[in-house]
């Protein structure tokens, strides 16, 4: 008992005050890209050629947040002259077309479905489905339950049964072998229901796009309400997206 109390005192209270108090991430974190439209076209083209995800539209100076894995190679190559990653982790979008960005995303809250706010604003229960996710997205979603993030204080919980859920949170490029289980889980959630695509894989297939063994795009199976980009999304990206879309 004494050891428990000693540890409790040493640990203290670690829960973040976000969103009341802003959090600044380490300067190496790669979040919202800034795309310099006026950079030399040849250099932008070089960045696009180097990009392993083919996420850069050099001609229109746009970046596809749904494809990007934020590896930062374009930033290194162009020394930040074409593309620069900022520490802004607020990357969630409500419409697929918003994923293709020049670095200025529309406010997520403005694009949220209003009836979702009314229905789920005070209590949101989600069923997580990993459909061939690599366990990075899964692990960094799970982290929201640790004391630092403490997701439950916002009335948001991940539940065991789809029957108890208001929606599904999907990670992974959706392998053929998970297709049936994913659809069965979706069907089991009572309507009206929310669909969240989390991570580059669930949005676009991510690194696995094009493989004949994966579906590669959740939106091609069921209509997605909320997209959370990243590889994996930072837990704060997920938290920001959930709070702004539903609260």
């Amino acid at each position: 008992m004494l050891t428990i109390i000693k540890n409790r005192m040493e640990q203290g209270c670690r829960t973040s005050r976000y969103p009341k108090t802003p959090i600044t991430l380490n300067n190496r974190y790669r979040g919202m890209p800034k795309i310099h439209k006026n950079c030399p076209a040849a250099l932008m083209k070089k960045c696009a050629d180097l990009c392993p995800q083919e996420a850069i539209d050099a001609e229109n100076a746009l970046l596809d947040l749904g494809r990007c894995v934020f590896c930062g190679q374009c930033e290194t190559l162009s020394k930040g002259d074409c593309i620069q990653f900022t520490q802004n982790f607020e990357l969630g979008v409500a419409r697929k077309e918003h994923l293709l960005t020049n670095g200025n995303l529309p406010r997520l809250a403005d694009n949220a479905k209003k009836h979702f706010k009314k229905l789920f604003g005070r209590s949101l229960q989600l069923r997580q489905v990993s459909a061939a996710g690599c366990n990075a997205c899964e692990a960094d979603t799970n982290v929201l339950n640790t004391p630092f993030f403490d997701l439950a204080r916002f009335g948001i919980q991940f539940v065991a049964s789809p029957r108890h859920a208001d929606g599904i949170h999907v990670t992974g490029p959706i392998s053929k072998n998970m297709h049936a289980a994913l659809m069965a889980t979706y069907e089991a959630v009572p309507a009206p229901k929310v669909v969240i695509a989390s991570g580059s894989c669930a949005i676009s297939g991510g690194p696995f796009r094009g493989s004949p063994e994966v579906v590669g795009d959740l939106n091609s199976l069921i209509p997605v309400d909320l997209y959370i980009p990243g590889c994996p999304p930072h837990p704060l990206t997920t938290l920001h997206a959930l709070l702004n879309y539903f609260k």
């Binding site: 180097l50 990009c51 392993p52 995800q53 894995v69 590896c71 990993s130 061939a132 996710g133 690599c134 990075a136 992974g172 490029p173 392998s175 053929k176 072998n177 998970m178 289980a181 894989c201 991510g206 690194p207 696995f208 094009g210 493989s211 004949p212 063994e213 994966v214 590889c231």
Partner: peptide, 25 residues
């Protein structure tokens, strides 16, 4: 098997620049 993404086959079929991010996944 539910997680099978065909990784080994992909690694010999796609442009080499994609390999590092596939391997990380």
């Amino acid at each position: 098997g539910y997680q099978h993404r065909g990784v080994e086959k992909m690694l010999t079929a796609v442009p080499r620049k994609r390999l590092p991010v596939i391997v990380e996944g």
